[in-house]
Design a protein around this nucleic acid. Structure first.
Lengths: 222, 222, 222, 222
DNA sequence: TATGAATGAGACTTCATTCAT
DNA sequence: TATGAATGAAGTCTCATTCAT
């Protein structure tokens, strides 16, 4: 029954993913400094030298984690929005947010790496997250602008207003995703809905000067 | 002639505050693990054994920082609200938020300790922050409830709705304080105003089913 | 068309020489400890296991380098002397020295392995170099003795004097070869000539029975 | 009798010298790479962290060793020469050489650090030794020039010849010191005398304008 | 009260070497 | 014959923490 001693040979790409999986988990839970390469290697089921052979250094490993998780998150949001292609910008935004919450709830450690850990570890890392955030922000901004234009409220919101809105929306979403991950008692989904309703009210208010009209908030709609 | 060697004797309480000042600065900038007792002692202008004599251990020192900063933040918010005593709950909430943003902008390292660092270092520490957050949340919840009741909208929001709203509001505020500290380009105050307008719109929407009515958001005011 | 992946099959002897070439280069430049088998294998254009298959271990590889370079150096000197066969012992010695300098200038890494690196790495290796040096020394000693006898100075130098002379000559030659390799500005040949002139003066003195003139060497003066 | 467990407290300067003593010994015997900080600390009778606290890094420790030994050697030679102040340049040179051999025989590990180890470890270190050698060389050159001038041979040796002579003399001395340290069988002193006699013959030849008698040194040949 | 001297424990990293194909 | 995959062992360095004065 010696299933521990004979470590199976595996192609490099596969092993690398295993290592990243383990690293995201440990980094997400302990933080960059408190995580030890020993623990990561053990969780990945390999020896430490192999981790170094493939990922080079603790710093590189952490960067690789950040990049992978950032890419996955961006892709998830894009997919969420893409599924609603052809519908209103308003609806696309809603679907994007849902995808965001779903993804962060499914990969809590990945989200912790991005939001809690990478940003507090200073320079090489914070920049990676900032880049991703910038991308998201631009995306959200364009969706909000489209929504405002579709609604042709009067007066149309200034570019500055739209940017501020996007910033606040993204910030609130991040914060909520964090909170949902920490307290899994009831309902990440529910909290997400709350935020979205809340946001929509503000958004709606600004854009059209009227009551909340979030696509998912009206009965029977989705 | 040894005027450098003989460190002035100082009352214990003063020395302790110097140490905590130094610790908050270092912890806030480097994080718990990356901060070194050596650096803290040096910045405090005392020898390392003295730090241990007064604060006992790195863990205790960090805890003391968290407690002090949490207390200071809560006090600042309470004072902000208290200054508006006797006015509408709505206005009190607004003033509390302003106090929050002012305080976090004035003590960026303290805020970093609370929001970025303590929460990512696992148990003894996260709990301290959670306790403070709980307190804030309860406070905000009561203010929102009061605002809703004053407005006696129809239908009145459920307790659950109010709780969700408070959660979202606090989360958004935290996120924004963070962002304002990181990027001092635009202006923390401005960003804060943006968020508050945003929040009020949503709040107003939910509470009364109408357009934004934040005290600071009316034209000409602010 | 994987023309890169399929390393040409080569006879073992050839491959082995490639590996030794690479090893001499790396060992000569970095030293025994600082040299890594990885770097050697890469420079040789083969995989590490193949190096082990052929040369067995780092220690054996280094020994093989020493042996090869020692043999080559001895052969070069012998050839130099041999070309002057039939002429005076004096002239043979001169030609041997020239061959020595030429060879060490042509193979700086090989000379570094022998003179700088092997001798500083303790036992299995130092002995190999010592053996080669012993051989050289005996050879030089016999040539000096022959030269003295040809010159039949009066009194003839003692065996002890001849041995000391050989020792000093070889030592000076080694040192100069080293120096010439390190500083390629002036010209190895020129420096060699200087040494040889220098040596010959001393040699001539001893051989021809000219008395030493060192201040401390005269009786009573010391 | 627990004389091992209670490590006596000592002033920093003293401890530092103990560490350097240990380091010179280990570095001299094993070489830079093969020496381990563990072994050095143990030999010094302190814990490893203390070595790092005082000497900073392995590299710095090695540099400190080189500097200390270089300074000691230069001082020893200067003292040797200085004791002969007022006598002939010729005699001063002789006394300097004797001091050199005495010193290197008394501190074999120090000499090994300078001559065998530091020079083979590449840049930060080789430069330190080169600087010392340069200093020595300049000193020896000036003494030889003075000796030649005192002897006013005809023709006077060119500056270039004097420089070459100095180079060869120093090189031979280094090599011999090395050899004497390695083989302590009979007599470092004796070997030194041999070299000096040898050198003096050559020196005498050059200084007195006796023509070189090397086979290849006759004009037109070579 | 205050500190210079000192260390146990553990972190990251590298390297010679082997296995399985 | 030849190599991609993998690791045990060891090395440099840092850090929280304590003694002895």
């Amino acid at each position: 029954m010696g299933e521990k001693r004979t470590r199976k040979r595996m192609p490099r790409a596969v092993r690398e993913q295993q290592m990243l999986d383990a690293a995201v988990r440990i980094f997400g839970q302990r933080g960059y400094r408190a995580a030890s390469m020993d623990e990561i290697a053990e969780l990945a089921g390999v020896s430490k030298p192999l981790v170094y052979l493939y990922l080079n250094s603790k710093e590189d490993l952490f960067s690789a984690c950040i990049r992978r998780e950032a890419a996955a998150l961006v892709a998830a949001v894009r997919d969420g929005v893409g599924a609603a292609e052809g519908t209103s910008a308003d609806r696309q935004l809603w679907d994007g947010l849902r995808a965001f919450f779903t993804h962060t709830a499914e990969r809590p450690d990945g989200w912790a790496v991005l939001h809690s850990q990478a940003r507090t570890q200073g320079e090489p890392f914070a920049a990676l997250v900032t880049a991703m955030r910038e991308e998201m922000l631009a995306y959200v901004t364009s969706l909000i602008a489209a929504a405002a234009s579709e609604a042709h409220g009067d007066p149309a919101p200034s570019q500055r207003q739209v940017a501020g809105l996007a910033q606040a929306l993204v910030g609130a979403a991040e914060s909520l995703a964090d909170w949902a991950n920490r307290d899994d008692s009831v309902s990440a989904k529910e909290a997400a809905t709350t935020l979205m309703n809340f946001a929509w009210a503000g958004l709606g208010g600004l854009v059209e000067g009227r009551a909340p009209t979030a696509p998912g908030a009206t009965p029977g709609n989705r």
